[in-house]
Write a protein that binds this DNA or RNA. Structure first.
Length: 314
DNA sequence: AAGTCGACCAACCGCCCGGGG
DNA sequence: GCCCCGGGCGGTTGGTCGACT
């Protein structure tokens, strides 16, 4: 009955990885590359489930993993992205170079959720006094986080999807031509710059007056966040490819343009995410006035909002 | 010093999706 | 169209360790 397990658990090691196992896995991947996770343990001589190997590599052994505390900037970014995306840890992680979804998820669950919950509760008559230490006072991570820096207004989060259900199809009317050449764009720069921009835009971003969709942090803000930072330096297409590879998903869904069709654009989550960057690419590479964005580096926020509102209506 | 509690986080689990046959 | 497989994702668990009493 039930689902067939991904592998036989018999005779397999479980729990924490030993240094020896790590070494074996690293050596194997360095030689053979990633993929074929199910076969990997057998071929590499590891007594581990393939999924376990994959997780170990992605969350711990990858060379581009950034170790250390989450910075205040990263924390702000996580909060805002979570507001926008909900528990889409992989997407959020995609915006934080070197951070893994697991790490962000853990960080959120142990620090930020309580922090924000505390904020909410503190402004809602503090009904739960029985729950001591709820407001981050004794949270261990206070040593590394910056709760004082979170001066968020206590308000319910508005996310597009709070439930972790994959959105595989999003139809966006053919306002944008995603078939345009993708060049001179470095997503890595986009990511890093975008991140800081998002933070900087925190307080002065023009939030929409429209109900619902664009309240608080919204798609247009995310777009703006990217767009505002699209003017720096010339960037290479292979940079984009590189970050796609590092970002696991976007190369498949976006760089190939699989999901992007003009006049009725279909896109996956990954494509949706990368769409923001593609919008940026569009703006940068074409510099045409045919779409709602001004060809200046400073884009018209209202245009962006209207664009998405129209999309929503459609 | 010893016991208890709670936070942290690596690892696991189960579900879902896309691709291929 | 259906089924299987590989891979990805989010939720949850459990071991470890530090803080507190």
């Amino acid at each position: 009955m039930g689902r067939k397990p991904c592998c036989s658990k018999e005779g397999l090691n479980r729990g924490p990885w030993s240094a020896q196992e790590d070494k074996i896995l690293i050596n194997y991947i360095q030689i053979h590359g990633q993929g074929k996770w199910r076969d990997l343990p057998h071929k590499a001589g590891l007594k581990r489930c393939g999924k376990s190997c994959r997780l170990r590599w992605l969350n711990y052994l990858r060379p581009d993993i950034k170790r250390g505390d989450i910075s205040a900037e990263e924390e702000q970014l996580i909060i805002r992205l979570h507001k926008l995306l909900g528990n889409r840890w992989a997407l959020i992680a995609g915006r934080l170079p070197g951070r893994t979804d697991n790490e962000i998820k853990n960080y959120w669950n142990t620090n930020l959720s309580k922090k924000l919950e505390g904020d909410d509760k503190s402004t809602s008559m503090q009904l739960h006094k029985s729950k001591k230490k709820i407001n981050g006072c004794s949270i261990k991570s206070s040593k590394k986080s910056s709760s004082e820096e979170i001066n968020k207004p206590a308000e319910p989060h508005r996310v597009f999807r709070t439930k972790a259900v994959r959105c595989t199809k999003v139809v966006i009317p053919g306002l944008l031509d995603f078939n345009q050449t993708v060049d001179n764009v470095g997503a890595e720069n986009v990511v890093s710059q975008s991140s800081s921009a998002l933070i900087q835009e925190d307080n002065n971003s023009a939030t929409s007056d429209h109900d619902g969709l664009l309240m608080d942090l919204d798609i247009s803000e995310l777009l703006l966040w990217d767009a505002l930072n699209s003017s720096s330096g010339s960037l290479q297409a292979n940079d984009y490819h590189q970050i796609n590879e590092n970002g696991d998903h976007r190369d498949r869904n976006v760089a190939n343009g699989d999901h992007l069709h003009h006049h009725g654009l279909e896109c996956s989550d990954f494509a949706l995410e990368a769409m923001f960057e593609d919008l940026l690419m569009d703006e940068r590479t074409t510099r045409l006035g045919d779409h709602p964005f001004q060809h200046n580096d400073m884009m018209d926020l209202k245009s962006l909002e209207l664009y998405f509102l129209n999309s929503e209506d459609d």
